[in-house]
Design a binder for these strands. Structure first.
Length: 126
DNA sequence: ACAATGACATAAG
DNA sequence: GCTTATGCCATTG
């Protein structure tokens, strides 16, 4: 497993409220720019308890263009309507086509030191 | 081991 | 700008 799910979850936990990131970004931070799909899989495996208030899974969205993202979940337990509601509650705005402006709400990502810390922790915890 | 699938991404038509 | 086709990683049958 080149891309450890725990790292994905840890990174998602670092996303500040009112900000969103794409699956591809998360994958890139972990050194696997092509593992966007796997990131989605990792989040899909999150338990309901974690999703409740610990892991802000809703802040991870798909790409809809260079500057826009959109809710791409098809999961039945974490529906798109639910995700949109959670984001709007944090101040993230959706345009008329259910898309988010990444230039306004996108997150540049954590500092490398934080990513490194996560890697070490997951390495240690393992 | 092979084929199919999925909360993705990018290039091509 | 939208639809299709291909590529990707990891899981599952």
């Amino acid at each position: 497993m080149a891309l450890v799910f725990e790292r994905v979850v840890a990174l998602v936990c670092l996303i500040p409220p009112g900000r969103v990131v794409t699956y591809g970004q998360v994958a890139t931070w972990l050194g696997e720019p092509r593992a966007a799909r796997t990131v989605g899989w990792a989040l899909h495996g999150i338990s309901p308890e974690e999703a409740a208030g610990i892991v802000p899974w809703h802040r991870v969205i798909g790409r809809a263009g260079p500057d826009h993202g959109w809710v791409s979940t098809s999961c039945l337990t974490h529906t798109a309507a639910m995700q949109r509601a959670l984001l709007e509650d944090e101040g993230v705005e959706f345009d008329t086509r259910e898309r988010v402006d990444l230039r306004r709400f996108g997150w540049a990502g954590p500092a490398w030191s934080d990513v490194e810390k996560i890697i070490e922790e997951t390495e240690n915890h393992r």
